[in-house]
Every structure is written in structure tokens, then in C-alpha cells.
Computed example of a mutant assay.
Amino acid sequence: MPKYLISFEKGAMDHIPEEDFADVGKASHAVVQEAKDAGVFIFGGGLRYDDDDVEHAVVEIDGTITDGPFPESKELIGGGMIVDVPTREAALEWAAKIAVACRCAQDVRKFMFDPEQDD
């Protein structure tokens, strides 16, 4: 089946009051559990950018490694989930559930099929 990345940009949840984050966490974890129970969940999580302990590096094509952070001009992913579903419509349904739970818009992108890696 096709795999889809459902994600949101860094800062997309900045409008949520701090006192509501526990509810957002519970709602998003419920959607993840639903996806697991449905057998479509592959991976998910948020990305951290807010402290000095964040491990981040950029590896250039010549192998040069530079420790982060990313330049602010780059579009950054705040978090996401990968699902393995039969159709785009199914991916959009999961994205709608995540959008409601996380209180922010979601980007949905299909991974390219690779016959050497995919079923």
C-alpha cells in the first residue's frame, strides 16, 4: 500500500495556549492509537527545536558535517505521522483526524514507490 507523510510546520501550534497542550497531547495520542489499532500507523512524532540538547546536524554532499541549527529560512517540519493506507482519500481522513487533534493544518504527501523496498 502507499505510504503518506502527514505533517505540520514548525510553529503551527504556536497559537495554542500552554494550558491546552495536555488536551492536545491526549487527543493526538488517541488518533495515533486509533491508527495503530487500524494497522496503518508506521511512525510518528514531533521534532524538538527549543533547547540546547537537541541533536541536529547537516551533512553536505561532500560529507562535511555541521552541527545545527537549521537556518531560519528553511521550512521546518514540526511533527508528523507516516501511515500505510490504500488510497489518498484514506490518508486525507487520517490527516483530518490529526488536524482536529493537533488544532493545526496538516500537509499530506505520498512517498514515491520503490520496488526494491516496498511491498
Rank of each mutant, 00 (worst) to 15 (best):
D50N: 02
V40C: 07
D53Q: 10
V31H: 06
R88Y: 06
G45M: 00
V24I: 14
D37R: 05
D37C: 00
I77P: 04
C102R: 04
R109L: 03
C102H: 09
A27Q: 07
Q106I: 02
G44Q: 06
A105T: 15
A95Q: 04
V32Q: 07
E9I: 03
G78C: 09
R48P: 01
K97T: 10
M1L: 10
V40L: 01
G11H: 06
V40A: 02
K74D: 14
D114T: 12
E72I: 10
D37V: 03
A99F: 03
F43P: 01
F43K: 10
S73D: 13
D52W: 05
F111P: 00
F41M: 01
P86M: 02
L92C: 09
I61E: 15
W94Y: 14
I42A: 03
D107A: 14
E18I: 12
D37W: 08
E72W: 04
P2T: 11
A22R: 13
A57K: 07
Q33L: 11
E9Q: 13
G80W: 05
F113G: 00
C104D: 03
A91V: 02
P115E: 06
K26R: 15
E116A: 15
I42E: 12
C104M: 07
V40F: 01
E34W: 03
F111D: 03
A95M: 04
R109P: 08
D118H: 05
P71R: 09
S73V: 15
M1R: 10
K3Y: 13
A96Q: 04
G39V: 02
H56C: 15
K3S: 15
